[in-house]
Write a protein that binds this DNA or RNA. Structure first.
Lengths: 253, 253
DNA sequence: GTAGAAGTTGACGCAACGGCAAAGTCAAGG
DNA sequence: CCTTGACTTTGCCGTTGCGTCAACTTCTAC
């Protein structure tokens, strides 16, 4: 079923002016615009609006919200991530309340304040920064193509590794050869190997500098990937991180 | 001890530019300005800054924050109020997280959405409004003069009622006479009686329209006051509320 | 047809800073 | 004393995300 702009505004407590603004900037286009020029919204738009409001609540700017909302391909995963962010923010507010409690005690105690104790007065105010959440989302979706490829073969990470992963293994063996030859991760030959990986990735995902760097960190830090790399060669994970990070820095924006 | 602006900025994670802005608008003047023109802050200012940051975190505008921070005369009470607001906000974020959890379940269930179910998607987004918190603070301080007068006599609310309250009781008896005479709360004679109350209050507190209205509501809604009014005459509380509200509307700004 | 509600677009203003420039002050080292 | 770099000042401009308002169109009920 479809809702008019006023109905959506009432449900969501967002003004119709804001909804139009979000349409203007492409953040939340309506499902359709009638012959009369009126906007009509469907379930898909309401779900998207909820995501927007969560991220707005968490203090993100609209450009960051657009990026996160637009790039998510698995809605359930996105919602789970938002849920986790909300719980983290809830816990931060709890910490804030505890900071105020502590202040009450100190003021009642009439103690002389020092630089050290005063610093405690501001614990919890340093909220999750836009960049941190944005980066986490990028890391998340950077890993998505791996999950998607894994799902495609309807198997476990080990299955992927034994099949599609063999292509990737060839690249890894090349990297190991680079290591044995004493080449730095920044060496042009190493970067060419990484470029092969980057071209391969583009089949399902086009990362930018930040998200490709995020993927590099994921390979090195996530136990699933780390275990496989270490099995092949214990030097590999960190070498790969350095090489991919360099590639992202010099060739991506 | 005194802190420079950069030291305060580092402790509080607020930029020095913002601290200067707060000085400019009178929200947070420094303890003193040195001969060199530099701002120096003391414990008092840090405590005030913490309050400002709490209220900012809760979404209040700076003008509302100024009002709340400036009017509080009992710091401990103010901090307790802020603590309570933070806990309420924390609980709201918890509700938001639950809303997202519910959405996850519904989307996974693939159910068709109705107007009724969609409305649940936005539960928790309606945060505490600036006006609500402002009003609560005004109510709080509106009641403060009663508490202060009560403390002055170092007794219980009943003590106050038996002593200073007798002056107040005379006004109430006049109001009861107005009721018996069938005069509406808006009647000029009634308003003159309320004016007597207003003049009496000014000994300890100068309310504006909103805070005097808040006091009217406090008298009618707070069990301590309500019980005393009902004891005198069951018609009194609501009549007083209406009369004081009218007085505030027509004579205060 | 009329009136009021609902919706549109466009434009302006506001709040709360962040960033930057220009200039002054301070402290340490030569 | 001079120099340098860190720290601080004031003033000004721009940004972001709306809220408000005006002028106009569309819809619905009487």
């Amino acid at each position: 079923m479809a809702w008019s702009i006023a109905q959506v505004a009432r449900m969501s407590k967002v003004t119709s002016r804001t909804l139009r603004h979000y349409d203007d900037i492409g953040l939340l286009p309506p499902a359709r615009v009638g012959d009369n020029g009126y906007r009509y919204y469907e379930q898909e738009q309401l779900l998207r609006l909820q995501q927007i409001l969560v991220l707005r609540e968490l203090g993100l700017g609209l450009d960051a919200i657009a990026e996160i909302v637009n790039q998510g391909r698995d809605r359930i995963e996105a919602l789970r991530m938002h849920h986790r962010w909300l719980l983290a923010e809830r816990d931060r507010l709890d910490r804030l309340a505890r900071t105020v409690s502590r202040t009450i005690s100190e003021v009642q105690g009439g103690e002389k304040v020092t630089s050290k104790s005063a610093a405690h007065w501001f614990e919890g105010f340093d909220s999750a920064k836009q960049e941190q959440l944005q980066q986490e989302a990028r890391d998340r979706w950077g890993a998505e193509h791996v999950d998607a490829a894994n799902k495609k073969f309807a198997g476990t990470p080990q299955d992927w590794w034994q099949t599609e992963g063999q292509t990737w293994l060839k690249s890894l063996n090349t990297l190991i050869a680079h290591i044995d030859a004493g080449r730095l991760p920044t060496d042009p030959a190493v970067q060419e190997t990484i470029d092969g990986h980057y071209q391969w990735i583009q089949g399902t995902w086009v990362p930018n500098r930040e998200s490709y760097t995020g993927l590099a960190n994921l390979y090195a830090d996530d136990p699933r990937f780390r275990a496989n790399f270490d099995k092949t060669d214990p030097r590999l994970a960190e070498y790969l991180r350095a090489a991919m990070t360099e590639y992202a820095r010099t060739r991506l924006s």
